[in-house]
Design a protein around this nucleic acid. Structure first.
Lengths: 222, 222
DNA sequence: CCCAGCTTGGGAAACTTTCCCAACAAACCC
DNA sequence: GGGTTTGTTGGGAAAGTTTCCCAAGCTGGG
């Protein structure tokens, strides 16, 4: 491996789209990033719509995005970019460090989440991690998520409502949408909506993952 | 409850479509069935196409069908009828007593399976059971299926091919179609086809049932 | 009283499932 | 050797499901 290849990325370096509504912040971080030599900020945007336009025009390797911008949601922009390209790496760069916010970002398709309170080296480390295909979070976010997962009664039985739990239980037991609708006297549409809601809330992508979760939480057995 | 309602069915009785390619068999069974008083054979057919036509014209409560008819498959007719009406009860009446044949019939949408070697009372008992919404099989079929389920190495690991097992394992582990396709270097289409094939072969209707099955067979753990 | 959150379901686009079929290779029987 | 069966791979098209958005009704708390 030669020196020019040590990042596991082409010698052309990493192209970056910087999205933040504060010009001063963009300028500061542009300088920090470009100081890396192989990082190239190819575009900037100060709102979600421009960010999406710039993404389509430049097809950057990485989008570094502040999701707390005025007007349209930054999460929306993340979702839009992700739905158009699964290859683009998206790093959310936010001042919020709430667990729910972080989960929402990853749910929308982000590859990493770094708070603005982090040292510049953390941002750089995170960008290098996500171009390698890894997920990245800053140290303070890691601490918040770790604490949250240790807190008592966080068994997702309290993040779901009663109806959601009942439907998850029946899904895990192997019931079809039709059977659940009949059992609970609901329309199939409602059961489908719950099914989807449960997946979204728990972050599970397949029904198989849902079954595992239900079993882990003691909702179902095998 | 009055005497005329003891069957749990309206006082108009049970309308039956009789399908068998042998006229003598039809005549014999028509007499046996009508001797019941509340059973009314409203139509007969000697092939799958006529059976389907008669079913559409008469909308009988029960279809008693021999699936080993010349030409078109009787199973095909069962599937057609089932896809048009989930309320119609279908009793397969066959001379075969192989487990695979029976499973195929239930898979196609049959509600019961009685062999021609059974006593007439078994046929009548089965019809009464299926109009009550139960599933019914004759005693000899029960014995065949029971034996089969006891036979060694019937863990469905031998009813599935290697690829099918690998895909079931990954599905149960929570992998998405996309991930499995990538892991095994297949197209998503192939993985989808296997997913469907596995469901069909094992008789599972939901992915949750598939997970339970995989865990039971030691393919996956939780 | 109003706001937040739960429950219920419609709507519409996107995606999956279902089932059919075909090509090809390996194994298997006659 | 040649035909048959069985496993693997995937296309095609209709039917069904998922995804996401929205709205209305209800309940409970500040």
């Amino acid at each position: 491996m030669t020196a020019s290849q040590t990042q596991g990325i082409s010698i052309q370096g990493i192209s970056i789209l910087l999205v933040d509504d504060h010009p001063v912040v963009r300028q500061g971080y542009r300088r920090v990033l470009e100081h890396q030599g192989d990082f190239h900020v190819v575009a900037e945007a100060d709102n979600a719509a421009d960010a999406y336009r710039a993404f389509k025009a430049q097809a950057p390797d990485v989008v570094v995005m502040d999701i707390s911008m005025p007007g349209a949601s930054g999460l929306e922009a993340v979702r839009n970019i992700r739905s158009r390209s699964s290859a683009t790496r998206i790093l959310v760069f936010s001042m919020h460090s709430e667990a729910a916010q972080v989960k929402a970002a990853f749910n929308a398709g982000a590859n990493g989440y770094v708070t603005k309170g982090s040292a510049p080296t953390e941002l750089i480390r995170a960008i290098r991690a996500i171009v390698r295909g890894e997920q990245a979070i800053s140290d303070d976010i890691a601490r918040v998520l770790a604490m949250e997962s240790l807190s008592p009664s966080h068994s997702l039985l309290d993040q779901l409502g009663e109806r959601e739990i009942e439907i998850l239980r029946q899904l895990a037991a192997g019931a079809t949408t039709e059977q659940i609708a009949a059992n609970l006297n609901l329309s199939m549409k409602t059961v489908q909506n719950y099914h989807y809601l449960i997946k979204t809330k728990t972050g599970m992508r397949t029904d198989a993952q849902l079954v595992r979760l239900a079993v882990e939480c003691g909702l179902a057995s095998l």
